[in-house]
Simulated scan of single mutants.
Amino acid sequence: MRFTHTLGVAFETHLAEARYADVQQDAFSEWRRKVKRKLRHRAPTPALQGLSGPPSPTGGRLFQTAAVEPFWQRIRGHLERENSARLRSVLSEGVEGVLNQLHPGISWRAPYLRVDTATGPEEIELAGEGLLITPSLFATHPLILGADRTHTGVPALAYSISLDPDSASTIWQEEEEDRDASLRDLLGHTRASVLACVRNPKTTSEISRCLHISNPSASKHVGVLRRSGLVSTSRRKGFVLHSLTQLGEAVLG
């Protein structure tokens, strides 16, 4: 028996389609909204039943690109932390203690591991052939997978983990949103908006209208950004234009 943090992005994608099809308000609601925008209301086919293989090369790949890959680094980190916690528990409570704490639908009574799956209770006899145990973010119920479906040569037990609101808000934040939030923390909301506004060169009046701030306020923020080396100011055809420097472009990403 051994523990691993994930069976991979394709496995989680397979389960994520069923989560996406769910309409309840839960820790995945923000994720569904973001995926829906990406897919432009494409309706996925729920893939929980069967788990016969990886997502289809067309629709499944599109769904994986939109729904899982943008968040995968955080999802994997969350699963790694869960797996590490279980490994620490093995040292203090033993394997039997951990098996009985994985999930309310999983219980151990030697030599059988009882698992309440989505299709009903199943039992695994742990008789030395090995078992791979892994957490899953998108699984709605514990799952038992045969050795032929894990690519590891041993059967696997994937148990669903709960997602608290704080973890959810962190996981569903995308890289671009991260960068924008960090920039706002660094510069302040208005100044960060001014910096983004001058991706295309603008006059002070244009910045003012774009951001709904006064001309003196726009001029003040541009001055700070210019002294910081993020914005340059030049005169073109009688207009004073503000634009990003190379450093400003690098900061915006």
Rank of each mutant, 00 (worst) to 15 (best):
R236Y: 13
G229A: 08
V224H: 05
R227I: 12
R209Y: 14
G229W: 12
R227S: 15
R235V: 07
T233A: 15
T233V: 15
S208M: 10
I207L: 03
S205P: 04
R209S: 08
S205N: 11
L230H: 05
S228H: 10
S219C: 06
T233R: 14
S205V: 06
S214M: 07
S208G: 12
A218S: 13
N215F: 01
V231F: 02
V222A: 02
R226Y: 14
L211S: 07
S214L: 10
R236E: 13
R226K: 15
R209F: 14
I207R: 00
P216D: 02
S208W: 04
H212Y: 14
S214F: 09
G223L: 00
C210A: 12
L211F: 06
S219N: 08
L211I: 01
S217L: 02
K220N: 05
S205R: 11
V231Y: 00
S208V: 07
N215G: 00
S208R: 01
I207K: 05
R236V: 12
A218N: 11
I213K: 07
P216G: 03
R226Q: 14
R227N: 15
V224S: 00
S228Q: 12
K220P: 09
S228Y: 02
V231A: 03
L211Q: 09
S214E: 02
R209W: 06
E206M: 04
E206Y: 10
I207H: 05
V231S: 08
S214V: 08
H212E: 15
R235T: 05
E206R: 10
S234G: 11
R227H: 15
S219T: 07
C210Y: 09
I207V: 15
G223A: 09
R226E: 13
T233W: 13
I213C: 08
C210K: 01
S232P: 05
I207Q: 02
V231C: 00
C210N: 04
R226D: 03
S232Y: 13
L211C: 04
H221E: 00
L225W: 05
A218T: 07
G229L: 07
G229Q: 02
V222I: 15
G223R: 05
H212G: 12
R226C: 08
S234F: 14
K220S: 10
I213N: 11
R227L: 14
A218R: 05
G229F: 12
V224P: 03
S217T: 02
V222H: 00
S205M: 10
H212F: 15
R209E: 11
H221R: 04
S234H: 13
R235I: 10
S214N: 09
S234I: 14
R227Q: 15
R209L: 08
E206N: 01
N215C: 03
V222N: 03
H212Q: 15
S228F: 13
G229S: 10
S208A: 15
L225H: 06
S214Y: 02
R236D: 11
S214C: 10
